[in-house]
Amino acid sequence: MERLLEGLILENVGKRFGPRPIFSGISFSVSLGEAMCLWGPNGAGKSTLLKIAAGLARPSSGSATCSFGGRSGKPLEFRNSIGVCAPDVALYDELSPEENLDFLSRARGAKRDKAHERELMESFSLEGFANAPLGTFSSGMRQRFKLIAALAHRPRALLLDEPSSFMDEAGRARVESIVASLKNSTALLVATNDPAERAWCGSTVSLGGDKFC
């Protein structure tokens, strides 16, 4: 496969849990300005593939690499360039959004962009909850904050697993408009089985056979 200048590259990726193969031979790349959908029924391995792309799961075969700023490597070597919003990536219930964002930016060793964070909090209508413990949030509010946390450091690759789950209509519309605004500058990978979320993306990788349309 031809090397990309900037983006995510998955080459011949396969995953099995014990003797059970989930998927195999998956190859694709998502470059900056491209939006890719991982599409398939429940259990097809969308979330697992997204975790492999983020560096959170090890593939049984093949490899996932990132390439940004003329440098290539494992996804976790690009902590400041990747944003992930997924059910398996939780935030700290005892901390407030403000404290969670402070921890995430310090842990990444990145400079905090408070104006950008405030803008995101306002756009997701959470500006009045900046100092409330995350444990007191509803599922929808929690999902909104997860997206804020994934976007706060202005990632160049954004990996979203069913990003508008638990959200009301206003929240879904907000996610859609944010995704639309990031499409041209970010490598976007969305794992979903929701046709509305699939419509955000320019191309699709189908998992789990042809039966799921």
Binding site: L56, R79, Y92, L104, R108
Partner: peptide
């Protein structure tokens, strides 16, 4: 248990 281990992996270096 809380699902935050992946958050640590995503944001922090192992030695930190």
């Amino acid at each position: 248990d809380k699902g935050t281990m992946n958050t640590l992996r995503l944001c922090c270096r192992a030695d930190h």
